[in-house]
């Protein structure tokens, strides 16, 4: 058995925002020994698979759960960004109309499928729904600034989220490669045993 430790997460960060890094395995035999498995015992295969399942497949499952959570967050943010852009658009239109000294005539939905006409006279302010049953009146400039800041924040969070997802997916790939290699190693091992028995 090789004495040097060959399983470590070489070169990568150990975790990112609470997501632990997967262990990269360089030498399968050493790795299994470190898990406390006797690779040479007669029952090795069953024991190996069981312990391996506990350790690695569980981890993979956890990664998948986190991935789903992050994907949901990503979808939310991706929907939020065009919404904010739409808000900015209408605020800009109101401002442009005001500067031109015109009223904005708009058809709006009063109930599903029923529209009414509104005439929005020169207006200095809009009301922003801030959530939690709170609506605040802002001047158009302030509303524009606030919405722009929200847009920036949403884009920044999306960037971070995408980086998180990439990190997570790397860990999933590392784990999958490890699983494949341990299974291969086992198959290989049993072939050798078979060959020695027959000889």
């Amino acid at each position: 058995m090789a004495a040097s430790s060959t399983s470590s997460s070489v070169g990568g960060p150990l975790e990112r925002r609470g997501i632990p890094a997967a262990t990269f395995v360089e030498d399968v035999q050493t790795y299994l020994t470190q898990l406390g498995l006797d690779a040479n015992s007669a029952l090795a295969f069953y024991k190996n698979v069981l312990t391996f399942k506990c350790v690695v497949l569980d981890r993979l499952q956890q990664y998948k759960i986190v991935e789903m959570k992050l994907l949901a967050q990503q979808r939310d943010l991706q929907a939020k960004i065009p919404d904010i852009e739409k808000c900015l658009d209408i605020v800009a239109t109101l401002q442009a109309k005001k500067d031109a000294g015109e009223a904005l005539i708009a058809d709006f939905e009063v109930s599903e499928g029923i529209y009414s006409r509104a005439q929005i006279e020169e207006t200095d302010s809009v009301c922003l729904w801030l959530g939690a049953n709170v609506m605040l009146e802002y001047s158009c400039d302030e509303a524009d600034a606030l919405l722009k800041k929200n847009l920036e924040n949403a884009k920044a969070s999306l960037g971070v989220l995408i980086a998180d997802l990439q990190f997570l997916r790397d860990q999933v790939t590392v784990t999958q490669v490890t699983i494949a290699r341990v299974y291969n190693w086992d198959v290989h091992q049993r072939r050798i045993k078979q060959a020695t028995k027959e000889a």
Binding site: G11, T173, V174, Q176, V177, A180, N184, H188
Partner: peptide, 16 residues
């Protein structure tokens, strides 16, 4: 990303 059955090739961190 699965390896087929066969001989074990050493996978280095760079490969990973």
């Amino acid at each position: 990303m699965q390896q087929g059955p066969g001989t074990e090739t050493l996978v280095t961190w760079e490969d990973q």
